[in-house]
Design a protein around this nucleic acid. Structure first.
Lengths: 352, 352
DNA sequence: TTGAAAGCGCTAACAT
DNA sequence: ATGTTAGCGCTTTCAA
């Protein structure tokens, strides 16, 4: 009768109670952290549970609690190594804190509305958003439903949602200084065409810093997206131009990789010989031999930690105003801004 | 009284029923795909639901159904671009199919047991595992609890769990042929030290193919992990050796990037001049100008689709035996195996 | 087609 | 400290 192939229904608290000779509530209490159970009752329950392979049904528990320990993780552009690292960190960190990440990947142009909908279906305890899409709506909806929300590197929407972002202002300054120290006085910018909050901030901060330092910004070049292809496109535009610059700031590393490759492989320019380069993020690739890119580091581990801790805080005290968290950045100096002996021709940018 | 700041409790089916002037079950039926509701009742319910912002509580629904539409996604090494792509695809594909991915990232050396535990707590509808850790235990446990399981590129464990894997045999052949066609007759292998099912298959298949073609395998070099650093370590070992080879097969692209960088930047050897290189996966980086790596493509989209479709099939018919799915591979020819004019010195591998 | 009622597995307030 | 009981929000037989 008891066929091994037919997996029997999962054991319930009732089953355990029966076997242990106690009441269901005793079982419940045994598995509830702050409950009072007699040590020996607890023992009996634990043993029975073990032999039966009992596990608390979190769905039922969440139903009682009116809130699950699921956390919505809205992410886009996982192909960007920084995002991938961040996602991994957020995931492990959440799991370590007893929460379960519900992964909600956003395709480009995908409806974020679907995701909030989803999360609300699941009574998520909170949500973390690092998507590039505009979070205004998602934030409002979450607020309406009392779902604590954390935005990473996004435009702040209200003082009820926590904003965790890198120190863009300092990042811009560090980048400008790095170029200045490398001798640059006339630079270009490379970024994405589609406007983005965080990229926008990086650009303007860099711009201001250059002004202060007396660095002239000659022009700006764009790719469609802030990725490798975007960097290549920006570099193509750059090379097609005839302006004379001695440095370039790329809005992020991922894009910088494409920029570098195009410059190195499809032009006669040398980095850092003819052109210094600085970017932002410090993805692992920036440290690779093929790139050796000076960049402003934004630590994904600390960012993720700040986001998760912040979320936990908001979950336990949802009614406090959320003070924005700014994650420090620092310059990682590499070969792309190395000082080089003056070129024989003595020209910053030789004709192609 | 009705303060906007205090988000009111989410509306329930009861609330909707009251507003629509019907019974709760009518509401339930309205939101149950195959139920029978009078068109106008349905209309009333839908309207009431809309004004109240009602959403079915999936936790409660799952409790009734005895199974949620959560799917465990056990992933490790998200830093590997192939894994990142796969994860993104799996996520979007699951969401598109009406399932919700529960992200369970495995740290290196992390206990997978924790994850199965978690999934069982949530009555997941199924699970997809692309983790590198041994899945034997996880598979057994899932089977015990009737949780459909799909393994991607892992060692098969039983005919109740579906195995989706790339065609390693063909991959080995394609790689060997690519090297052969590029003129290689004596090659080396680069992979990871820690044994891994999929890497192991790639190696042995390549080995056999070389034997058939009359390519001699001179030696094998290892890095600790199948990543960039692993590739660098393997290349270091390779360079420290004095064997004379004309080609190298890297067990995966990610590792190959490190291998290439070390060869290109820390040795006098040229690729493909002195050394042809072939790897496996076809991550985006392989096509970058800095690498231009000939590789055997394993399409993450098709792999993910196969896994998700397979999972759905097993969810609907859990008692059929799972026929392994093999995902086709093909060669992507790039510069690392380009034929080059004979070197002036006429020597395959010049001394450093 | 619709209302009534039982039950999914668990928690928590209450009573003992 | 433990048993009792009333829900949590939904689905689903069963009658009507």
């Amino acid at each position: 009768m008891a066929d091994e192939t037919r997996p029997t229904r999962a054991p319930t608290a009732e089953d355990v109670a029966r076997l242990a000779g106690v009441h269901r509530s005793a079982v419940s209490r045994t598995f509830t952290p702050g409950a009072s159970v007699a040590p020996q009752t607890r023992e009996k329950v634990l043993e029975a549970a073990a032999t039966l392979g009992y596990r608390v049904n979190f769905l039922a528990r969440s139903l009682s609690h009116q809130r699950s320990n699921l956390v919505g993780l809205v992410v886009s552009d996982i192909d960007n190594p920084f995002r991938a690292q961040l996602l991994a960190e957020l995931g492990t960190s959440l799991v370590a804190s007893g929460y379960r990440p519900l992964l909600l990947p956003t395709e480009r142009g995908g409806k974020v509305a679907r995701h909030i909908d989803m999360m609300l279906h699941y009574n998520v305890a909170g949500a973390i958003v690092t998507d590039d899409a505009s979070p205004a709506e998602i934030a409002r909806q979450c607020a309406d439903h009392g779902v604590p929300l954390v935005l990473i590197n996004k435009r702040p929407v209200s003082d009820t949602v926590l904003n965790v972002s890198m120190d863009t202002e300092t990042a811009g300054e560090l980048a400008a200084h790095a170029l200045f120290d490398a001798g640059c006085r006339r630079v270009a910018l490379a970024s994405q065409r589609r406007s983005s909050h965080s990229i926008g901030l990086r650009r303007s901060a860099f711009w201001r810093a250059c002004e202060r330092l007396g660095i002239e910004i000659a022009d700006e070049y764009f790719g469609d997206l802030p990725n490798y292809e975007g960097g290549r496109a920006a570099a193509d535009a750059f090379l097609a131009d005839t302006i004379d610059v001695d440095g370039v700031y790329c809005a992020n590393d991922y894009l910088a990789l494409g920029f570098i490759d195009t410059i190195r492989h499809l032009s006669a320019l040398s980095i850092p010989g003819d052109l210094k380069l600085v970017a932002c993020d410090d993805i692992p690739e920036a440290g690779w031999l093929a790139y050796d890119l000076t960049t402003v580091r934004q630590d994904p581990v600390r960012t993720a930690d700040a986001a998760v801790n912040g979320l936990l805080a908001r979950i336990s005290e949802p009614d406090t105003t959320a003070l924005p968290v700014v994650v420090d950045v620092h310059l990682v100096k590499r070969g792309s801004t190395a000082l080089t002996p003056p070129k024989p021709r003595g020209q910053a940018r030789p004709p192609l």
